[in-house]
Design a protein around this nucleic acid. Structure first.
Lengths: 130, 130, 130, 130
DNA sequence: GTGGTCTAGACCACC
DNA sequence: GTGGTCTAGACCACG
């Protein structure tokens, strides 16, 4: 279901969050859709329930999902983009670091733009546009 | 000299590494140029020498710098890009995560491409070519 | 558990790394096996945890082990040899120096080959093949 | 004249010692031959005279050379092999580490033996035998 | 003066 | 519990 690498340095709970957010953009999850329960996901992915719990809490904090007590966790239907200055800086840093590393691997500007375009297509495939 | 945020979640030593690598691409550091000594940088940045040491060792491990015994640490003059499969995956993940987050902030494809191009220009400004 | 000589000129952390790598080849450590925790090994070997930590990080960097977040350090199950040009030179230098020194101790070609064969047997004893 | 890598982790003075000892075995230096003076070697190799001085002291300590005060340093004419137990252990450790590393690079027993034989030939070319 | 190693002890995030 | 990072302060080899 999710693409988790337990030996990665990015925390597992963060990988789950990323997977869900990416999945929504790809159209794998529809707004209003129910996510598997903490226990269920923990069992199928062989993860510690606490880890899944933390991921779900983080998703809710980001308003990507909403939790209905006793009913489960659902993809938000009314997500509104919020342009947070700090978040923007963070994203730029992410890109900048990627660009620097790509340069050190021998990629030039064009290569990098192409790589980004490929990744965009991969993501946009599932949805008409946003 | 360096742009360090001690309250950031990225380790200080890693921020130093990133700063140096970015500085080289921007032309702030010339190949062969001497970096400040471990002690000196630690003093000016108010960091523990061990932290700076760790950064310098990581830089040397990546062949971004070379260490001359008893003389100091210098920017490599003969850096050769090496395409590591794992590293490439890592960079793609970085980009993908940035793209996902950007989407959640309301940016569309074009916005993202433009953001990347801006960052590329910022980096390429200092050097004739790469 | 490990064969450490604190009075040796080779750093302790490097001796630990060598011990683990040799132990794997001898079959003392199985792929997937858990290494003692940093604290535990530090305690039993009467070393500072940081020293053990450095050794473990070096082992992971070489992909000899993998680290599972919050769970511990394990022998890699899928180690793939990688032929690094620099590393090969390094190994040859090691052998060359050994040969030169052996000559100065009065050993001839045959003696040296026999010494190598002995060492190979010592290592290969634990495993069916390599 | 000598093959020195200033960015290597092996101390420069040790590299000089190794070069001289190897050169003797290869027949590049004859017993009784005069080595360049400390100043001369330091100048031609662009090294710190102290470094060369240290190398020469080490060579004399090992009885590989003898120094005639005011006349210079000469290759010993009466070098006698001495089987030092500690030294033997040291050499074996060098070989063992080389073997372990070679294994991790994917070489098997035969590859290693062949590598040793090549290195032996390279060294034996200059002399009939020892 | 340079980097390299080690100890001691602390705090943190993650599982 | 696990590893990861940081500070503080010390000692050493090298050039």
């Amino acid at each position: 279901m999710f693409n988790i690498d337990i030996s990665s340095s990015t925390p597992i709970y963060e990988q789950i969050v990323d997977n869900v957010k990416e999945g929504i953009l790809k159209g794998l999850f529809e707004p209003g859709e129910k996510l598997p329960s903490v226990r269920e996901l923990a069992k199928t992915m062989r993860l510690n329930p606490n880890t899944v719990q933390k991921a779900y809490q983080e998703l809710e904090r980001q308003k990507v999902t909403i939790t209905l007590r006793g009913k489960g966790t659902y993809i938000s239907t009314d997500y509104k983009p919020r342009k947070d200055e700090d978040k923007l800086m963070e994203v730029k840093e992410m890109f900048k670091k990627g660009i620097v590393e790509a340069h050190y691997m021998g990629f030039n500007e064009e290569d990098i733009i192409n790589m980004i375009k490929e990744l965009l297509e991969e993501l946009e495939g599932g949805k008409a546009n946003d």
